[in-house]
Simulated assay, not measured.
Amino acid sequence: MKFSAILIGLAAGLASALLFAGLILQSPTAVGLSLAAPIPILIASLGWGSRIGFIAALTASIALAGVTGFAGSGLILFATMALPSAIVGHLAGLARPKENPEPGVEGPLAYDWYPLDRILFAIAGIASLACLFIGWMFGYDAAEIGPELATALGEQMGATVDPAMQQQVQTLARLIVQMVPFIQPALLVITLVAGLHLAAILTRLSGRLDRPRDDIPSSATLPGFAVSIFALAVAGCFVPGTLSVIASVVAGAFGTAFTLVGLASLHRRTRGAKQRALLLIGAYGAIVLLTFPLLAATAIGIFETARSAARDRAPR
């Protein structure tokens, strides 16, 4: 391992820590930058190797703990962003020589690279584990957090003396608490997927990315057994207690992964269409404004995954 590569890992870790620091320090102008924290670590891993990516992850966590003076902040970064980014970068860089390469094919094209469906599955699984760890670390308890959140919202909205408004605030607080196990892993999946995509673009522009460009709309899917995992998670959401929270986290992560597969399918199916740009803009606009198009994308992602799995199992 070259010393210059180690310096790259250290610099990437410091950059990631600075990006994430706004979230820990609750700076309103820097919270958005925290979503970019995985990018430096992913660039280090994709361009300089997995070991450099893990060095960057450790550096980021240690640096953040030093800046904030709170070891827990470094642990939060390590569990939610740094370590997942290093693992995802490692998976994206895995390759093995093809068993029967075509004559004249050399370099990266002579290798089978770790498939996108496995990478997306790993991201969903890692996001689930990371959110469950953070929930355990902070002692997430919906029954306890709900009343506290209702009280805080009531004070901000001036609902402390109006019984009707208090009831509305309590209902809103319960809804927010119930949605957190879904939203947190969903946001983490999107952050890691977007970070990997942007990091790959930047690393390829620098000429350091060996992995060939993936045709994402055509190859984005999930392994067939992910459908069963998602179905069990959705069913578990209706079981009371801690199991419901765990199932909600898994459902949020894998549901988001299926939604991304569905959106990739939309990009593939509209290729060659004269009004492709208008169709995509309309689809994403409907997703932002409404809810059911997002559910439709999730259903399409499940369908595409099941169909791909059936095609792979079919005798040839």
Rank of each mutant, 00 (worst) to 15 (best):
A60K: 00
S45R: 03
M81C: 07
I41V: 05
V250W: 03
A124L: 04
F20C: 07
L23R: 09
A143G: 09
F133P: 03
G125R: 13
P181W: 06
K98C: 07
S219I: 11
R211L: 02
A247W: 15
S34W: 06
R118C: 03
I302P: 01
A247Q: 06
D214C: 01
Q178A: 10
S85F: 01
A56I: 04
G9K: 00
L263D: 10
K98H: 11
A264H: 12
L109F: 12
A164N: 10
R51M: 04
D214R: 07
A247N: 09
V239S: 02
I134T: 13
G252M: 02
A37W: 03
F254L: 02
F54E: 01
A173M: 08
T242W: 15
L198M: 15
L10D: 00
A231D: 04
L196S: 05
L94S: 08
A150F: 02
L120P: 08
S61L: 01
L77S: 06
D312R: 12
T270P: 05
C131N: 15
L19P: 11
F238K: 02
S27I: 09
A186H: 05
G158N: 03
V239E: 14
A143S: 12
I41M: 05
T305F: 11
R269K: 09
I76D: 11
N100L: 13
I216M: 09
I302A: 03
L243A: 04
T203C: 06
A37C: 13
G72Q: 15
I119T: 15
Q184D: 07
A30R: 07
D141F: 11
A264G: 05
L232T: 09
P101F: 10
D117N: 15
A30S: 15
H90I: 06
L132G: 02
G104A: 09
L120H: 13
V239F: 07
L290N: 11
L64D: 00
H267Y: 08
L153A: 08
G195Q: 05
I62Y: 01
V31K: 10
L175W: 08
A233V: 02
I300E: 11
A251W: 04
G93F: 06
L188K: 09
L198E: 11
A11K: 02
I55F: 02
T259Y: 12
L263Q: 13
G154Y: 10
L23I: 10
E106T: 14
